[in-house]
Design a protein around this nucleic acid. Structure first.
Lengths: 230, 230
DNA sequence: TCAAAAGTGTTCCTGGTACACCCATGC
DNA sequence: GCATGGGTGTACCAGGAACACTTTTGA
């Protein structure tokens, strides 16, 4: 069933840059191997065409679900890419989103074929289809920038985490080491962490206390003009 | 000449939020009165459909030129708006940009009809067509946020300006007063302002020294890891 | 007993903030 | 001479940065 318009229209897609943090504290991105040309066999960001009856964010979530099995993840619009020749077939405008997932609690279940989705360390990426390397770099820059003044880092960690994990997260994403004592002092003074009466399980050294992010207190602090800044 | 596609496509527009600062230090937005339904007679952001042979930014610049006569202005992508029913006619996705112009050096020359474009103080806006109030509020939030850590404020001022003008700009956009001595100290210490051997003309009080933004020095400072922050 | 990370305070210095008066000019 | 903004310095305080050792646990 064809659809006809008076003026030509670009095709419209959403593409998702999905970040995860593995247990070795390295930052990963989720890629999909393309089956069809163009760029058949190459790796690309998960994404696809926007349907008429769904918002942009809904489209991004649907594509994530269909292509990777991920659902209910942190998702935020990143930027829109519309260079004239970014797709060799025809004019395609991509609205990019980025997502943060907790690699320990999620597993991939691509409805189509799980072997076509894989996590790559951001520093060791394969060649990407289309302009997806640009999109990915934009997402990485956004993540780095945003991590320091909004508490989005917790999305990459399990609900219960140690201060060491939190610190490594910041060091990994920002790309430089931070001082342990100052880091702890700063975070604890912010009153957005709740200390739990539990310690990390299965450590082959002294077990660290577990914390959780205090979403409620963060919200009320924010209303009183508090600035999260690391 | 109709255009036919296998799957239906949303229409794609670019919309521009154009900010200016008038001589009374009030922040203005440029709006266009719509001639055609829907929302005929109401005020809306300048914008229009993306052509196949132009990038998104090119489309935004073309629309600005056609509808308002503005050209060569600071322009940056803002956000994409794609709620299903944001346009009553059909599905339309809007990629919003925001622009900063210097009201003293630019005048409006709409190629179509200049009387259909007008500047409104952001605190006294008329009802807007579509979801343009949301777009405008998003732009305002971005402007406020960005002003403090990137030197985009200069785009709203003439090339030569006084420290008083610069301070008023910050006070107007941010919405709170700042201390004169501290503001000057901070800005001058950053080494991004060049003092000129000129003073402001036509003041009915002691004339203030004029400054210009030192783009070159800002760039080189940035490369050495300098953070502009007000 | 060794390896690995947990946990903890103090000092120094920079940079933010608060604050008030005289000066130059045009009318 | 009056109104308007121009222009300037200091004192205090909070918060960032640098820095090292003892403790706990499991293997």
């Amino acid at each position: 069933m064809p659809h006809t318009y008076q003026h030509p229209r670009p095709a419209l897609t959403v593409d998702c840059v999905v970040f995860g943090l593995d247990t070795q504290h390295s930052l990963k991105v989720l890629l999909i191997r393309r089956k069809l040309p163009p760029f058949a066999g190459e790796w690309a960001l998960p994404g696809g065409f926007v349907h008429l009856d769904e918002s942009l964010e809904q489209a991004a979530r649907r594509e994530l679900r269909e292509e990777t099995g991920l659902d209910h993840v942190f998702l935020e619009q990143l930027y829109s890419f519309g260079a004239v020749n970014r797709d060799p077939r025809e004019r395609v405008v991509a609205i990019a989103y980025y997502a943060l997932v907790n690699l320990q609690e999620y597993t991939l279940h691509a409805e189509t074929d799980a072997s076509d989705a894989a996590w790559f360390t951001v520093t060791k990426l394969p060649p990407l289809a289309f302009d997806h390397d640009r999109i990915l770099n934009t997402a990485l820059a956004r993540l780095k920038g945003k991590l320091r003044y909004e508490p989005i880092g917790f999305e990459l960690l399990p609900k219960k985490f140690t201060l060491y994990q939190l610190q490594k997260l910041y060091e990994t994403v920002l790309g430089y080491p931070v001082d342990k004592r100052n880091f702890r002092k700063k975070f604890l003074k912010m009153n957005v962490l709740t200390a739990l009466d539990e310690v990390e399980p299965g450590a082959n050294h002294r077990a660290a206390r577990l914390y959780k992010f205090d979403e409620k207190n963060y919200q009320s602090l924010k209303e009183t003009g508090f600035n999260f800044e690391v």
